[in-house]
């Protein structure tokens, strides 16, 4: 579903954010992308979602060439950015409807799907609320709703559960699992929460200073009686708990 080879990004000013990342994600997998702050997770995701042009490297995303056919890639993926994208003054039903139509749904489909997605994320009844009046956790769920109207085959979630209360977080895990079980959606997500990575992901990729330093299932990374936290510490020199507290 994702096949990246040698992806690198050097920002203007010489800051190398991602170095030679080669990775793959199989259809139907839920893969966690872990790493300390500034490791290059968001940068990698923005490259894979067509938002940022890699300095070098190539990738096939959702069956299409990232550089050669970005428009096709966009059609098949959903992306929730780390900082979200809710307009403060637009009623969210209206904005979600627009988003659905830009994804190619007809007016009627867009209306149906808007209601469906809002219900799925426990946001029914909030259609007329402008984004600016929502709580942080509600806004986060709206961000996720924006990525779903076109039933993407591949979902990129950059810290989707940051700022959610435990109940909402557990609900979101359920939603993610259900998306995979019912629609076969592949999920690539970042998180700073160890329990989340452990409970939700089939496989983890750990990135540090722009380079992939480990990959494996949570069980594999915990081999030898280490906790995931210890494994993370060994690999990156920093504790996951420390990260989560940031």
């Amino acid at each position: 579903m994702i096949n990246a080879t040698g992806l690198s990004k050097t920002f203007k000013g010489g800051d190398v954010a991602v170095k030679n990342v080669t990775m793959s994600v199989r259809p139907g997998e839920i893969v966690g992308f872990l790493g300390p702050n500034g490791a290059g997770k968001t940068t990698t995701m923005r490259m894979l979602t067509t938002l940022l042009r890699p300095t070098s490297g190539t990738a096939t995303v959702a069956g299409h060439d990232l550089l050669g056919d970005p428009a096709r890639v966009r059609r098949h993926i959903g992306y929730v950015s780390q900082s979200g994208g809710v307009s403060p003054s637009v009623p969210l039903g209206e904005e979600l409807h627009l988003q659905a139509m830009l994804y190619g749904l007809s007016r009627a489909e867009a209306s149906a799907r808007t209601a469906e997605v809002l219900a799925m994320l426990d946001l029914t009844g909030m259609e007329s609320r402008p984004g600016g009046t929502l709580s942080g956790g509600q806004r986060r769920r709206v961000d996720i709703a924006f990525a779903l109207p076109h039933r993407p085959a591949l979902l990129f979630l950059d810290e989707p559960t940051t700022g959610l209360d435990p109940q909402s977080r557990a609900n979101l895990w359920d939603h993610i699992r259900r998306l995979r079980a019912e629609d076969g959606v592949t999920v690539f997500l970042t998180t700073h929460y160890l329990d989340e990575a452990d409970a939700l992901c089939d496989r983890l990729l750990i990135i540090d200073h722009g380079e992939i330093v480990a990959t494996g299932s949570p069980a594999e990374l915990k081999a030898g009686g280490r906790t995931l936290d210890q494994a993370f510490l060994d690999l990156t020199g920093r504790s996951l708990r420390e990260e989560a507290a940031l």
Partner: peptide, 16 residues
């Protein structure tokens, strides 16, 4: 404003 709120980036990942 749209760039700051992230709404522009959200539109940019759609096939529009």
């Amino acid at each position: 404003f749209e760039k700051r709120s992230g709404a522009l980036e959200r539109l940019r990942v759609t096939p529009a």
